[in-house]
Amino acid sequence: MQNTRTADTLVGLFVACGIGALFFMALQISNLSSFSKNATYTIIARFANSGSLKIKSPISVAGVHIGRVSNISIDKTSYEAIVEMQIDAQYNLPDDTSASIYTAGLLGEQYISLEPGGSEDFIQPNGVIDITQSAVVLEEIIGKFLFDKASGE
């Protein structure tokens, strides 16, 4: 060991670098910064089929990210998927907003796109979106296409 003060300084430097790296990972590498501590409110949408939507899937309006899926469950009587969404509190949505499940690119992950309507009233927290369009299931489309072809001839 060299003299104590050099050692202390180097240890201090080491710890500072390490903590700096942790902050760098949190803020620059991960999505923590987009999780901004802003308040959010919950809205609910019911889909006939939620496809491969997952918790934390993004929610966007006109391509802009405004929230995340917080929970997916099933309605025990109607067998519809109930999707809960956390929307950033700074965005208010009209109460005739429609929700669709889309896929980012051909193979990408699924996300919810919200299509605001023209209503003057906003959806209240814990409100429900009535107009929804389910996830597109590729096999169904192909099946339908083949069926149409076959019956057309």
């Binding site: 670098c17 390490g18 790296a21 590498i29």
Partner: peptide
């Protein structure tokens, strides 16, 4: 104490 700091440094660098 050192290991997580070193691993974070490794990843960040």
């Amino acid at each position: 104490i050192s290991m997580p700091l070193l691993a974070a440094l490794f990843s960040a660098i």
